[in-house]
Design a binder for these strands. Structure first.
Lengths: 334, 334
DNA sequence: GAAAAAAATGTTACCGGTAACGCAAATCTA
DNA sequence: TAGATTTGCGTTACCGGTAACATTTTTTTC
């Protein structure tokens, strides 16, 4: 059996036109009559024609429908949701995604970028705004539509779709103060990549400073911000500073881990110690009390990023700084 | 500025050989002298040459380094981990992944397959073994290396890498019996795709039947198997059958949700009611007691699937049925 | 040391689309 | 109704690699 697919030429022949005309019809790029259109489409359908994207993208850079998407990870955390939303939106708009993870490691980021650029994508969605020198150089040389997500950047390389982490932190800082918390800790992980989480802590500290509150005791573990890291970070923090009356966690998973540690060591929440997370995940639903946190609309973020990218690819007008609003959930653990 | 990348011809010219020779060197396909090799590689490095995979894959089907990967979802559950492992392994072996999600919907599966085949991938990794007619037809027509993951299939279309869900269920059923549980419920969700979770229930029921135990009361919700679904499924089950003394959940997230419901309605676990999950995720760590569940090595599964696929692509010998062992965790909730 | 075999390299054609341009027919304009 | 413009379609060349085959150079063999 012949495993070759039907080609454009065959469709064109069947419809009695040149393959260029067939191409125009199938891409709907004008310059053909209504009659020709129906005939070509009918033949394409009849022959079960599937365009060879490889050939199309190869023939003309501008015909690529490939988009590279890079996030720190897919499992755990919020990125899985973000990627799902990006993918769904891009699929709807006729694009194909090439998804990769880099674990906040610039070396992996660079390697991924290199191999993705070899496929001549139409655009890129990267996480974070800090890149290695090599990455920056490649991006510059490629001059591709580029959306940087997660961390809002008011002076983006191209387009930034993200959350104002500084504000999240600041707002949470004010909530800590209004709840009379004064001896405060912060527990994070995975901060190797500057900008991811870091500015949240900055905002948090700023809020405290603005009210003359003391310094924040921080505990940063070098691992992904998971339940376990939250547990251990809390243990470390409390053994160093047993008098802490509240801890701000990098995310909800860590906060739940911290909660778990407090429970196991007989500390009441929020009586003895206040706890707050960030992100707003399902996990928190497990707790008896509603977790104090900041809700992020990951779906909206992913969708906005994808739509912005496509607009840029198509040369439509787009705002280059798109902020995704977050919502403080006061909850019952602070 | 010229945004074109350096091409193979330029590298060849610089090295003073024909582009065919340069191509051979860069693909390491033999038939060149050591001296030529070093010269070509040096020039390629100097000119910062990045091969155009598009052109390569286009010129020869067999040169494609693209692999399509389809899973139900990326957020929540275990698939994020599986995909991470697949992606890491394929990247290491020199392949590029095109990842998609289909939410256990055959229509989406078919649409995804169609658009991925347009990129002429070297192979595919799909989840589950039940496909729509259209999907089966396309797969047959394409005659691609194919790995079906998750659900072990002893008579696979090509290669199956998965878990024996029936055995998982059977083993758990025996544990239920050994703990003197007799009035048993099952809570699942998202079972629209036959084979995903279904055979676990079959195995579970079989174990009970083999010992003459009564029927299993099942509650199947039509949504993704999440914490909330576990909570509500438990509520429904217990309102219909208040005398249940144990519930088996489709996964750990649901089990934790069920746990949460029991807590909130004053039922002691495992005193009043026993609870068991499946999958072995971090979430369960939150509980004070260790959750009774079955641990799955998602990383091993992803890695094995990727390696099997590459072996098949390269025409190396591979077993076509690869079982990933699971481990029953007796825990303290049953 | 000549013929045969093997190794290294080159030549040509082609993959399946798209851009750029050319040209005839249909339509519009004055 | 002649000339200008628009519309519809075709022709040609090309994207950057790779397969298949041809050719040259080197090595081996007897």
């Amino acid at each position: 059996m012949d495993k070759r697919k039907t080609s454009l030429t065959e469709v064109a022949d069947a419809a009695g036109v040149s393959k260029m005309t067939a191409s125009r019809v199938l891409r709907n790029s004008g310059r053909f009559s209504e009659e020709t259109r129906t005939r070509v489409l009918k033949e394409a359908a009849r022959l079960n024609y599937v365009p060879n994207r490889l050939a199309a993208a190869f023939a003309s850079e501008s015909a690529s429908t490939l988009v590279g998407v890079l996030v720190p990870r897919l499992s755990g955390g919020l990125f899985g949701q973000v990627v799902e939303a990006i993918d769904a939106t891009l699929t709807r708009l006729g694009y194909q995604t090439m998804i990769g993870t880099f674990e906040n490691c610039t070396v992996q980021e660079e390697a991924w970028l290199k191999s993705v650029l070899a496929w001549r994508p139409a655009g890129l969605i990267l996480t974070g705004r800090a890149h290695s020198e090599g990455t920056t150089a490649m991006l510059k040389a490629a001059t591709l539509p580029l959306v940087e997500i997660w961390d809002l950047n008011t002076r983006p390389a191209d387009i930034s779709v993200g959350i104002n982490h500084f504000d999240c932190g600041y707002e949470m800082g004010r909530l800590f103060l209004s709840r009379e918390r004064r001896r405060i800790g912060y527990a994070g992980a995975d901060l190797s990549a500057p900008g991811l989480g870091r500015s949240r802590l900055d905002g948090f500290e700023q809020a405290l400073r603005d009210s003359g509150a003391g310094p924040v005791e921080t505990e940063l573990l070098d691992d992904r911000p998971s339940f376990y890291q939250g547990f251990y970070a809390t243990q470390n923090l409390l053994s160093r500073h047993p008098d802490l009356d509240a801890i701000y966690f990098q995310n909800d998973e860590m906060a739940v881990g911290g909660m778990s540690y407090c429970q196991s060591s007989g500390l009441g929440v929020p009586g003895d110690i206040g706890i707050a997370g960030w992100g707003g995940t399902d996990v928190a639903a497990i707790l008896e009390r509603r977790l104090t946190t900041t809700n992020i609309s990951t779906r909206a973020l992913g969708r906005a990023a994808a739509e912005a990218l496509v607009s840029r690819i198509r040369d439509d007008a787009v705002r280059d700084v798109i902020e995704i609003k977050s919502h403080l959930i006061p909850g019952d653990t602070l």
